[in-house]
Nucleic acid binder design. Structure first.
Length: 852
RNA sequence: GCGAAAGUGGCGGAACCGGUAGACGCGCCAGCCUUAGGAGCUGGUGGCCUGAGGGCCGUGGGGGUUCGAGUCCCCCCUUUCGCACCA
C-alpha cells in the first residue's frame, strides 16, 4: 500500500467511510481469536456438514475459479448457520498425483518441498477470502497420517475380493520408456518428446467397480443431485440391455457342424454381446478385436502372417487414436469360420480395430444391413449384407419382402425404435422386432447358445500408477505365499524421499529403483519378498476425504463411529461438473463398498449434491494456455473480499456459471458502500433520537418481499437474484434521499452476512448486536400478509394486447374490474364497435377482453 | 455420431405456475453537487413511428396450441460442454 492510499484510508476512516481492508482485517482476527468458525463436533445438535470440493494446490496458487466454487458453497453454509444449524465447513488439499509430480519435474523441485509451499500459499489466499473454514480440521492427502487410511481402504477392498491384479493396455512412450496418461498423449504423440505412442500390456491393480454398476445406477433414482450430473453418471455407467450369443467355431476337418446341444459347446464358441438379438439372422460375419485371445485359435495357417501384421499395427496405435471414429474401416480375414446359431450358416471371422477388447466380449456379430459400422466394413471388403428388419407396412406385415433396399438411409436400415418387423428370419419373420429378439434369444437359450444379458460401459477402476507421487499400494509379493497384504499394523507404507523421482524405468514406478524400499520380509513366512512399487491413483485419495474431516484427530481409526454417525452423510456437497463422473462415482463406490463391509451405516455419501457452473473470462474458458487466468489477490487487495465475493456471485446464475469482466465489479462495490452509508446514517439518526422506532409502512412491504426472495433464493443457490433483491431493498430504503431507521436496516445486515460476512459483522456491531453475527443473529422471517398491497394494478388486455392498467382493491370481482376497465378511454377505443365475446379474469393479475 | 445445457436490450442477466418481457447491475445520455475518491446524487435508457392521446414491432428462425406463449408442442439453425467405432 503506497503512502497516498494510506493517507486516503486515514481520511476515510476519520470520516467513518467504509474501508474494506480495515473492516476485513479486524473481523478476520476476531473470528480466529474467538474460534467462530469451529463447531463442537461431539455436541452439535443440528449438525450440517457443508462440503465443497477440496482443491489441488497448484503452484500458480488459488485462481478465481476456485474462489467462485468455494464462495458459493460458503454462502450456503453461512446461511444455514444463521438459521441456527451447527455448520461444519472444512477444507483440505488434494496434493498427490501426476499433476503435482509433473509440475515438480518441470520446476526441478522435489514434491516433498514444493507441495508444502503450495499448500501454505493456498492457505494464505483462502484465509483472506472470507470463507467459514474450520482450520483446525484440514486434510492433506500426502500426509502419512492420511494416506495410511487410504492404504487401509485398499486392504479392506483387497480382503473383500474387490481389488484384483490383471493385465491391461496402457499408453506407452518407447522413447521415454514410460506409461502415459491419456491426457499426456497429444495427437498420438508423447507430449514431452513427440515420439509416436504405442500400447503396452501391464499388470495393474483394479477395483471391481463394475460389480456395483447396477447399484450405482439404481441409486441415481433417489439421490438428491443436480439432474445433469445424474445424467452424466447414467451415461458413463452405460447400461445396455441385450443378449449374449455363442457362435460355435468351425473346426477344420470336423465336418463343420458345431451345433451340438449343451453348454459344452460354449467352450468352443465365440461369445458376443448384442443389443439387437432381433437382427441375428442378418449376422453375416463375425469381427474380433485384434487382441482377442481366440484369434490365434481361429486363424488359418495361410493367414497367420497377415493377421500378425495387423495385430502389430493395432498395438502400435495409441489408445486415443484408435478410438477416432472418422477413420476408414480396416481389418483382415482370419481364414476361420463360425456358425450363425440361428441360420446354421458358416460365416467368416475377421479381426478389425473398430472392435474394442474392453467393451462387451471383444467380439461382435456383424449385421451390415442394420449397423452403420458393420455396413462400412462389409462394403469395403465385399462381405454379404442381408436385411432382416423392415419398417412395418401395418398389421405385422413388412413391405415388399423381395425388394428391401439395404444400407444407411434405406427403409431397412432402421433405428431400433418402433414399427419394425422381422423379415428373412425364418419362423420369426413377421414378428415385431422387439418381440422377435426376445423370441430368438429364448429359442437359442434352450440350446445354451444365448441368454439375456445386461452390459455396462463402465470399466473396472485401474488404480495402479507407475509413478512416484502417490501412496504406495500396500501389497507384498512372496515367492511362496504369493500376494500378501501389508499387515494393518505396518501401515502406513511410507513413500520414501527419492532424489530422482522421474518415471523413467521400463513401465515400473521409480520406487522399483530403490532396493531399501522394495526388499522386505514376507509378513507371512518371513522369507524374502518384494514390495509392490506402484502407487495408487489420486482419485482414491479423494474418494473418501470427506469421511476423514470429522475425525482428523484420531490416529487409530480412519473415521470415528460416533462422529461419523453424527456428521455423515454429507448434508450439502457443491462442486464442479467436471467431476460428474470420476470423483463423484468413485466416492460413491468406495462408500458403498465400506457400507457392505460393515464400516458405514449409509451407502450414499452425499445427501445433496449441486453442481456449480463454469466461470469464463470474456467468453473464453479460463486456462493457463489461453493466458487469461485470473488471480483473485489483486482484486481482493483493491476491493476487499466482500465486494469480490458479491461480484462473483452476482455475475450470473451460480449453477450455470458466468463471465468474469472487470468492469462489472463496480456495481457490487457501490452497493456495499450504500449499505454502509445507510446503516451508519441509521445509527446516527437513532443516536440523535430520530427515526429509531417503527418501520415505515411503505417500506415494510419491500422488506417482507426482500426477506421472502432472499431466503428462497439462498435456499436454491440462486445467488445473483438474492443479491439483486438486496439491492432493490437498499434502493427502497434510500429512495428520495430518506434516512433509514434501525429496524429497517437490521434484517438487511443479517441477510447480507452470508454473501459479505466482514462488512455485515462490522455493521451488526454498530447497530448494537453482539458479535459474532453468526452466533447471535436470527434469520429474519416474513409475514405473508405483509407482502402485498391492498390495492393492485391490473393490466387490461383487449384481444391479448395490453391497453391500460386499472387500480383496484385486492380481490376485486370480475365485474368490478371489467366495469373499471371499460371506463378507460383507451380500452373503450379498442372495444368500440365490437361485441365482447369473452372476458378472461385472473384475480389480482389480469383481465383480458376478447372482442370481435 | 450420441448425450446434456443454452440462445432475451449496447453488455451480464431477471421473469419459479402460460398472465404487464427486460427485475437487479454494468455501460451510455442529461442535470445537479463536488475537487480526489468508492466520487456522489437525481432522472432517462429495447427498436421504429407519433399530432404526445398513443400506435406498431420485439425473447435464434419457421409453424402450431391458447383469450393470452420467452415459457407448452412440432420442425430447423447456432453455441457451449461431456462422451465418443459402446456392438
Amino acid at each position: 500500500m503506497d503512502s497516498e492510499a494510506k493517507r486516503m484510508g486515514k481520511v476515510a476512516a476519520e470520516r467513518d467511510d467504509y474501508v474494506p481492508e480495515r473492516v476485513e482485517a479486524r473481523w478476520r482476527s476476531f473470528w480466529e481469536e474467538e474460534r467462530t468458525n469451529e463447531v463442537d463436533l461431539d455436541a452439535a445438535e443440528r449438525p450440517f456438514f457443508n462440503l465443497m470440493m477440496y482443491p489441488y494446490p497448484s503452484a500458480e496458487g488459488l485462481h478465481v475459479g476456485n474462489l467462485y466454487a468455494f464462495t458459493g458453497a460458503d454462502i450456503h453454509g453461512r446461511y444455514r448457520r444463521l438459521l441456527g444449524e451447527d455448520v461444519f465447513e472444512p477444507i483440505g488439499f488434494d496434493a498427490f498425483g501426476i499433476h503435482s509430480e509433473n509440475h515438480a519435474l518441470q520446476v526441478g523441485v522435489h514434491p516433498m518441498e514444493l507441495i508444502p509451499r503450495n499448500v501454505a500459499n493456498f492457505e494464505r489466499q483462502l484465509r483472506r477470502a472470507g470463507l467459514m473454514y474450520d482450520w483446525t480440521r484440514t486434510v492433506d492427502t500426502t500426509d502419512p497420517d492420511y494416506y495410511r487410511w487410504t492404504q487401509w481402504i485398499f486392504l479392506k477392498l483387497f480382503e473383500a475380493g474387490l481389488a484384483e491384479k490383471k493385465e491391461a493396455p496402457v499408453n506407452w512412450c518407447p522413447s521415454c520408456k514410460t506409461v502415459l496418461a491419456n491426457e499426456q498423449v497429444i495427437a498420438g504423440r508423447c507430449e514431452r518428446c513427440r515420439t509416436p505412442v504405442g500400447q503396452r500390456m501391464l499388470s495393474q491393480w483394479f477395483f471391481r467397480i463394475t460389480e456395483y454398476a447396477g447399484r450405482l445406477l439404481d441409486n441415481l433414482e433417489w439421490i438428491d443431485w443436480s439432474r445433469t450430473t445424474k445424467t452424466a453418471q447414467r451415461n458413463w455407467i452405460g447400461r445396455s440391455e441385450g443378449a449374449r450369443l455363442w457362435f460355435p467355431f468351425v473346426i477344420v476337418g470336423d465336418g463343420g457342424s458345431g451345433l451340438a446341444d449343451g453348454s459344452a459347446v460354449r467352450a468352443r464358441a465365440i461369445e458376443v454381446f448384442t443389443t439387437r438379438p432381433d437382427t441375428l439372422f442378418g449376422a453375416t460375419f463375425l469381427v474380433l478385436s485384434p487382441e482377442h485371445p481366440v484369434v490365434d485359435e481361429v486363424t488359418m495357417p495361410d493367414r497367420l502372417e497377415e493377421v500378425a501384421a495387423y495385430q502389430a499395427a493395432t498395438a502400435g496405435q495409441d489408445l486415443m487414436e484408435r478410438r477416432k471414429v472418422d477413420r476408414a474401416k480396416t481389418g483382415v480375414f482370419t481364414g476361420g469360420h463360425a456358425v450363425n446359431p440361428a441360420t446354421g450358416e458358416e460365416i467368416q471371422i475377421w479381426i478389425a480395430d473398430y472392435v474394442l477388447m474392453d467393451y462387451g466380449t471383444g467380439a461382435i456379430m456383424s449385421v451390415p444391413a442394420h449397423d452403420q459400422r458393420d455396413f462400412e466394413f462389409a462394403t469395403r471388403f465385399g462381405l454379404p449384407i442381408r436385411a432382416v428388419v423392415a419398417v412395418s407396412a401395418g398389421e405385422g406385415e413388412a413391405k415388399d419382402l423381395a425388394d428391401v433396399p439395404l444400407g444407411p438411409g434405406s427403409s431397412a436400415f432402421v433405428e431400433h425404435t418402433t414399427d419394425e418387423v422381422l423379415i428373412n428370419s425364418g419362423r420369426f419373420s413377421g414378428m415385431p422386432a422387439d418381440d422377435g429378439g426376445l423370441a430368438i434369444v429364448e429359442w437359442l437359450a434352450e440350446r445354451s447358445l444365448a441368454e439375456p444379458a445386461i452390459n455396462y460401459r463402465l470399466h473396472d477402476w485401474c488404480i495402479s500408477r507407475q509413478r512416484y507421487w502417490g501412496p504406495p499400494i500396500p501389497i507384498i509379493y512372496c515367492e511362496s505365499c504369493g500376494t500378501v497384504p501389508v499387515p494393518e499394523d505396518d501401515l502406513p507404507v511410507r513413500l520414501p524421499y527419492l532424489e530422482d523421482f522421474r518415471p523413467e524405468a521400463a513401465g515400473v514406478s521409480p520406487l522399483a529403483r530403490v532396493e531399501e524400499f522394495y526388499r522386505v520380509e514376507c509378513p507371512e513366512c518371513g522369507g524374502e519378498a518384494r514390495r509392490e512399487t506402484d502407487v495408487s491413483d489420486t482419485f482414491l485419495d479423494s474418494a473418501w476425504y470427506f469421511l476423514r474431516y470429522p475425525s482428523t484427530e484420531f490416529d487409530d481409526r480412519p473415521f470415528d463411529e460416533a462422529r461419523t454417525r453424527r456428521w455423515l452423510p454429507v448434508d450439502s456437497y457443491i462442486g464442479g461438473e467436471e467431476h460428474s463422473v470420476l470423483h463423484l462415482l468413485y466416492s460413491r463406490f468406495i462408500v458403498m463398498a465400506l457400507h457392505d463391509l460393515g464400516y458405514l451405516e449409509f451407502e450414499e455419501p452425499y445427501r445433496r449434491f449441486r453442481k456449480h457452473g463454469l466461470l469464463v473470462k470474456d467468453g473464453a474458458k479460463i486456462s493457463k494456455s489461453r493466458g487469461n487466468v485470473v488471480i483473485p489477490d489483486a482484486y481482493i487487495d483493491r476491493y476487499g473480499a466482500d465486494t469480490f465475493r458479491t461480484y462473483l456471485m452476482f455475475l450470473g446464475p451460480y449453477q450455470e456459471g458466468g463471465d468474469f469482466r472487470d468492469r462489472g465489479i463496480a456495481g457490487p462495490e457501490r452497493f456495499l458502500y450504500r449499505v454502509w452509508d445507510s446503516v451508519v446514517a441509521a445509527v446516527a439518526a437513532s443516536a440523535g433520537g430520530r427515526g429509531c422506532g417503527e418501520i415505515e409502512p411503505e417500506l415494510e412491504r419491500a422488506l417482507h418481499r426482500a426477506i421472502k426472495k432472499v431466503t428462497e433464493d439462498l435456499e436454491r443457490l440462486s445467488y445473483n437474484t438474492a443479491i439483486a433483491a438486496l439491492m432493490d431493498y437498499v434502493n427502497a430504503l434510500r429512495s428520495e434521499g430518506r434516512t433509514p431507521s434501525l429496524p429497517e436496516v437490521r434484517p438487511l445486515v443479517i441477510m447480507l452476512a452470508p454473501v459479505a460476512p466482514h462488512i455485515a459483522e462490522e455493521l451488526w456491531e454498530r447497530i448494537g448486536g453482539e458479535p459474532s453475527i453468526f452466533d447471535h443473529a436470527t434469520w429474519p422471517t416474513y409475514d405473508p400478509a405483509k407482502l402485498e398491497e391492498d390495492k393492485v394494478d391490473i393490466p387490461v388486455q383487449v384481444n391479448g394486447k395490453l391497453r391500460a392498467t386499472v387500480r383496484v382493491a385486492r380481490g376485486a370481482s370480475r365485474e368490478a374490474v371489467e366495469e373499471l376497465a371499460l371506463r378507460d378511454e383507451n380500452v373503450r377505443r379498442h372495444v368500440e364497435g365490437a361485441t365482447i365475446r369473452k372476458v378472461v379474469h385472473v384475480p389480482d393479475r389480469l383481465i383480458n377482453l376478447v372482442v370481435g
